[in-house]
Amino acid sequence: MLRGLVLDFGGVLTDFGDDYVVEPPLLTVVREVRKHGILTGLLSNADGLWAPPTEWTGLFDAVVISGEVGLAKPSTAIYRLTADHLHLTTDECVFVDDLAINVRGAAAAGMVGVHHTSIPTTIAELAVLLGFPLLP
């Protein structure tokens, strides 16, 4: 059973799609899954100087930044560390990234991987995997 959603920052949480929206649609998905008790994580290969925007405070149960932990995607160790920060096992997590190599790294670590190629496709895949509707 999937109990955690982990997302990449650049290319995933920065994707506004084709429609004008106030916030990236996958950030809205984060808000929705939290209502269903799903733990959320942000995993980025950013340097140690980067931090999520302050308006995202409280949206993620774990934030793992490569520059802070000395590991980087697609190393399986960083996915395990992220799951540990969520107090979950990797097989309880789904990971979303726009780079296929990082999705393969997550799968090698035991996570379900979703290769983000478009907002509608990613949302549809997550809805099936998590077992409840997300955005229309």
Rank of each mutant, 00 (worst) to 15 (best):
L2V: 10
R3W: 06
L5G: 13
L5D: 10
L7C: 14
L7P: 03
D8W: 08
F9T: 11
G11A: 12
V12P: 06
L13N: 08
T14M: 03
T14I: 00
D15C: 05
F16K: 03
G17D: 11
G17P: 03
G17S: 10
D18T: 13
V21G: 14
V21T: 15
V22P: 00
V22R: 10
V22I: 08
P25G: 01
P25L: 01
L26V: 02
T28M: 01
V29H: 00
V29W: 01
R31E: 15
E32S: 12
K35T: 14
G37C: 09
G41L: 08
G41A: 07
L42M: 07
A46G: 10
G48L: 06
L49P: 00
P53R: 04
T54D: 14
G58C: 08
G58Q: 05
G67Q: 01
V69S: 06
G70M: 06
A72K: 13
P74C: 02
P74H: 03
S75Y: 07
A77T: 11
H85S: 14
E92K: 14
C93H: 10
F95L: 06
I101K: 09
N102V: 02
V103G: 02
A107W: 00
A107K: 15
G110Y: 13
M111I: 07
V112H: 11
H116F: 03
H116I: 00
T117I: 08
I119C: 07
T121Y: 02
I123A: 01
I123C: 02
V128L: 12
L130I: 01
F132Q: 04
